[in-house]
Design a binder for these strands. Structure first.
Lengths: 271, 271
DNA sequence: CCGCTGAATTTGTGATCACATAAGCAAGCG
DNA sequence: CGCTTGCTTATGTGATCACAAATTCAGCGG
């Protein structure tokens, strides 16, 4: 499978949202009120994580999570009615969620309005990784600077936990798990920076690269990689922002290399 | 007037979209078909710039342009029905446009869903300018690298034209004109880089800083500023990417300084 | 067997409506 | 006179519907 040839078959239309259960767990949310318009903020009480928000927010988060997890491969097409049906809402909130993702470039719209997961080419991926290489070290440095000794220790513990998950995922050849753990590591570090505007920028980039990264790790997967996370952890323990920033830069650069490798490979054997 | 005290009075509700005429120029587009639903992609033929798209796209562009021009001050509130009425569309596309801008952090939503132009604090502005300082030099360098001698000359001419507009605006004390010309200068330079993903990131940041910048220039306005644009032009002429990148970095840093100054001032004299 | 033309279906778009909640405001009470 | 309480209005949310354009596919001709 190459980057350009994802198409997980059988779901190119209405792109089954359901593999990993995300809905309100019980059978049909629609049966709560087929025509009873104002079921606003309903069906919240249950254990659904992040279900307390509006319908379009729930749909947005669902789609976003699936995108970040690499659950939706590049090139897959979605339909508004499809996501609406899968998430148990009407077309309006589904459309808003899709458009929002499109605004963040996490989904792309064809000229005729069809929705699909973008397939960034090598140039686009280069831009995206350059953005990551520029922004993420700054965020990492801010995190180190923002924390006192105790905060750094706590963060270090959390980061180590992510890194352990990551190691387990690599050992098990679990590509989605790898992506998830890696994302969690970076997210935890950058969230500690307390810089929401910068974080939003970075997350927007992640959203664009995630589907491709899933393919990358699905191929590279088990290969041993230099562990820049460990370097970042050491720098964090010492409170050395520059070291952490460098490690993160190297980590991003490594990701860029992997992607470039795979892009080259898929270019030589297209389709 | 401080950053925190914009409130252009009389338009805090339904925030009159109309000062600078943006609509379909003739009186009422709604009379084209009050209930005749499918007037899709209608009323395009006229001279309306960028009117060939869908309704929500038109609304989005309108709002975006007004935001970028600093036409909407921080803290101003908008309503979906208001923008719908002003742009002659129904609530649905107006809502989508608003939500899209909110997704880009160009508008913010209160907990209860009310829409307002965000009022970034000093910390947020710091983040935003750091992002600019990191991304824009890279984009500028890419532009220089992407162009051959002829391309650089053509771009230089275009940039000089923007810079002349900018000079005229400063001389006339025309703050909106200044913002517009400055934006045009940077946009022209970065567009030449041929890096749409990076450009989108930067534009997202501009959208967030623009309302504040308008206030900044309204206050600083006529003050003589070091002209980093000239430095960038010289570097461009020589094909020296590093020089251009440095000039842009200095330009952004200058903007950050102005904002910080004003933020400090408004902090000492709040409300 | 392949390419083309027509209809049928799918799909996005936008308008309208009902409803729940939040904001605004007035009158009454302490 | 200030605060609270109640109602009225404004506003966002989401469902449904009608329509147009694109896609798909079957049938036909070469």
């Amino acid at each position: 499978m190459t980057i350009a040839d994802p198409r997980p078959a059988a779901l190119h239309a209405t792109a089954a949202i359901g593999p990993t259960d995300i809905g309100p767990s019980d059978a049909g949310p629609t049966d709560a009120g087929p025509t009873g318009a104002g079921t606003r903020r309903a069906q919240a009480g249950a254990g659904d994580p992040g279900a307390g928000a509006t319908a379009h927010e729930r749909v947005y988060r669902t789609l976003r999570a699936r995108l970040l997890a690499g659950d939706l491969a590049p090139g897959v097409s979605l339909t508004i009615r499809g996501v609406a049906a899968e998430t148990g809402v009407s077309m309006t909130p589904a459309r808003e969620a899709v458009r929002r993702l499109a605004a963040e470039r996490a989904l792309s719209l064809t000229a005729s309005g069809r929705i699909l997961v973008p397939t960034p080419d090598a140039a686009a991926l280069g831009e995206l990784f350059e953005a990551r290489a520029l922004l993420e070290p700054a965020l990492a440095a801010r995190a180190v600077a923002a924390l006192d000794r105790g905060g750094r220790a706590a963060l270090g513990a959390r980061l180590r936990a992510c890194d352990d998950d990551l190691g387990r995922a690599v050992a098990a050849g679990d590509a989605p798990g790898y992506v998830r753990a890696n994302t969690a590591f970076h997210a935890a570090l950058y969230t500690a920076a307390g810089a929401p505007a910068l974080l939003a920028l970075v997350e927007s980039v992640w959203l664009q690269t995630a589907p491709t990264m899933r393919c990358v790790y699905a191929v590279i997967g088990t290969r041993a990689l230099e562990d820049h996370h460990a370097g970042a952890l050491r720098g964090l323990a010492k409170g050395d922002a520059a070291t952490v920033a460098c490690a993160i830069r190297a980590d991003v650069a490594q990701g860029a290399t992997l992607v470039a490798e795979l892009a080259e490979k898929s270019a030589s054997a297209p389709g």
